[in-house]
């Protein structure tokens, strides 16, 4: 049984237009992969397909050896798949901590062990540096905290695969620094966690991910180790323009 995630020939069509065209890539267990590409390249569509919100026209998604094709979106959390959204999806009437606790309702079944005591919602909020807002409503918390609360909620199900959809979008420079620190803290605490990070900020992705996959107009144009991909001419032309790799990284 292969561990991690394997995407095979994934095709997603909207009104006859291919949002994803025969995209294939894989992420090994514990690997952090950055999924980058220009606007409209199919990054968020890919996350929606992986999390089951969209049903692909063709192809398959295999996670830890299980084909997710027939698994509904709400059941994928039991397979160990969890995600965040580009715009925070928090219940406005629940506190930040209550929102985080929603993620603990359905943990992976069978082989999933009981989480250690330190994996409580409050503990995750503390690790991510936003525990002071635990009892606040989302509207009372800064945007960066709302984003991190989503990450904490996703972690509450003790996932083996975490999908992050543009976690840095809309954040200030200071909040981006906090986000990177929070994500590094997650890696330190959950070294076996597989992560797929969709993000526009190539510098941020490069600082966190060991592998990159690049989408352009729904097609995968490069996939491999981060520095190799950033040096790829096709990537420079399609995504980074004519800038050098050195310019793209911080």
């Amino acid at each position: 049984m292969t561990t991690g995630l394997e995407v095979r020939d994934l095709t997603m069509t909207f009104s006859g237009v291919d949002a994803l065209a025969q995209v294939s890539f894989s992420i090994g267990e514990g690997v952090w992969l950055g999924l980058i590409g220009p606007n409209g390249s199919g990054k968020s569509t890919m996350l929606n397909v992986l999390s089951g919100l969209y049903r692909p026209r063709a192809g398959s998604v295999v996670m830890n050896g299980h084909d997710l094709q027939a698994v509904r979106a709400r059941h994928r959390i039991r397979q160990g798949l969890s995600r965040t959204f580009q715009h925070p999806q928090l219940a406005a009437s629940l506190t930040i901590l209550e929102n985080v606790m929603v993620g603990a309702a359905h943990r992976p079944t069978a082989e999933a062990p009981s989480p250690p005591a330190s994996d409580s919602g409050a503990e995750w909020l503390r690790r991510l540096g936003c525990d002071e807002y635990a009892e606040h409503l989302p509207s009372e918390a800064p945007y960066g905290v709302q984003k991190l609360a989503e990450v904490a909620r996703a972690l509450m199900s003790a996932p083996s695969l975490l999908l992050l959809d543009e976690p840095a979008a809309g954040l200030s420079a200071r909040e981006r620094v906090d986000l990177v620190a929070a994500l590094k803290e997650i890696r330190r605490h959950r070294p076996t966690l597989t992560l797929c990070l969709v993000e526009h900020d190539v510098g941020l992705v490069a600082s966190l991910c060991s592998e990159l996959a690049v989408l352009s107009a729904g097609r995968l144009i490069a996939n491999g180790p981060t520095q190799t991909v950033l040096a790829d001419e096709a990537v420079k032309v399609a995504y980074l323009g004519t800038r050098s790799t050195h310019d793209a990284t911080p």
Partner: peptide
């Protein structure tokens, strides 16, 4: 009622 997508992806029907 307030975050249906998040509900779906956290296992709520």
């Amino acid at each position: 009622g307030e975050a249906e997508l998040a509900g779906t992806t956290t296992g709520i029907s």
